[in-house]
Computed example of a mutant assay.
Amino acid sequence: MIKNLNLIDSKLSITNRIAILTFCRNDIRNALTGSYLIDDIINTINYVNKNSNISVLIITGEGKAFSSGGNIKEMLKKNSSFSGPVEEVEKKYRNGIQKIPINMEKIEIPTIAAINGPAIGAGFDLACMCDFRIMSNKAYLAENFINLGIIPGDGGAYFLQRLIGYQKAAELTLTGRQVSADEALNLGLILKKVEADQLLKEATKLATDIAKKPKNTIRYTKRLLKMGSKLPLSEFLDFCALFQGISHNHKDHKNAIKKIKVKK
């Protein structure tokens, strides 16, 4: 167990500044509801944000699925996160599944979804919240809320269209159909399709390429990348100037310059 981190349905390993969060609820296909996975994700984000020795987070699933999203058995129960009058269900969503996108937007380090199996509904949306997606050739994606008579209550409609554009996001959301690894690659939904037994190796390879860079610079660059799609150019450039001022005065920059001089 990692000190000061309490995970119930997941496990976290840390090696060479790379953290791997693995969902361990194969019995429910790593469903985010009806489990403690939401809390585990949030606790992990808080932990890595405070730990400067972690520079990349990989998220993956144990067993056959990455995540099946909402637990359908929970939806059938009378007393669950999906039951009650409108006001009660709204509150449950805000205090439950919607904590994932709120916190994923706050994470300070790059994230990689290593999609080992089906990523469905909120599971697919979680993958879309990550910076990179690497997918097993045996996995598939599905924004299948409409097949259950519900909408993407976790914010999926926000993230998906930012990855592949409105029209294609609308088609996937309004049909709820499955997307293979090949199609996902063609759409630009994923960075790479790999053999199932090579998934973590490829994800770790990318994570290693990033993690060996100056750790302070990684965090500032991640923040700028997230800001770039939200701020007007003039305001964005103000933050660039501020972060660059900090970077020029940080030991990471000075050490990097020294290494370049040594190589020459």
Rank of each mutant, 00 (worst) to 15 (best):
16 N>G: 01
18 I>E: 11
20 I>C: 14
21 L>D: 05
22 T>C: 04
26 N>F: 10
31 A>K: 05
32 L>Q: 11
32 L>P: 13
32 L>A: 12
33 T>L: 06
34 G>M: 04
34 G>H: 02
35 S>C: 05
37 L>Q: 12
41 I>M: 07
43 N>S: 15
45 I>G: 03
47 Y>P: 03
53 N>K: 11
55 S>C: 10
56 V>D: 05
60 T>P: 04
60 T>L: 09
61 G>I: 02
67 S>I: 02
68 S>T: 11
72 I>P: 14
72 I>T: 14
73 K>Y: 10
75 M>Q: 13
78 K>M: 12
78 K>L: 13
81 S>Q: 13
81 S>V: 15
82 F>R: 00
82 F>K: 01
82 F>W: 06
83 S>Y: 00
84 G>S: 12
85 P>L: 08
86 V>M: 13
87 E>L: 12
89 V>R: 15
90 E>V: 11
92 K>F: 01
93 Y>S: 10
94 R>T: 05
96 G>V: 02
97 I>V: 15
102 I>A: 11
105 E>Q: 08
106 K>A: 12
106 K>L: 10
108 E>T: 05
109 I>S: 03
110 P>M: 08
112 I>K: 11
116 N>I: 11
118 P>D: 12
118 P>A: 14
119 A>C: 02
120 I>P: 00
120 I>T: 12
120 I>H: 07
121 G>Y: 08
122 A>N: 14
123 G>W: 03
129 M>L: 15
130 C>G: 05
130 C>N: 12
132 F>H: 15
132 F>A: 04
132 F>R: 12
133 R>N: 15
137 N>L: 05
138 K>E: 14
138 K>C: 06
143 E>H: 14
146 I>E: 06
147 N>M: 13
148 L>D: 02
156 G>P: 00
156 G>M: 13
157 A>K: 09
158 Y>K: 05
162 R>Q: 13
162 R>D: 05
162 R>W: 00
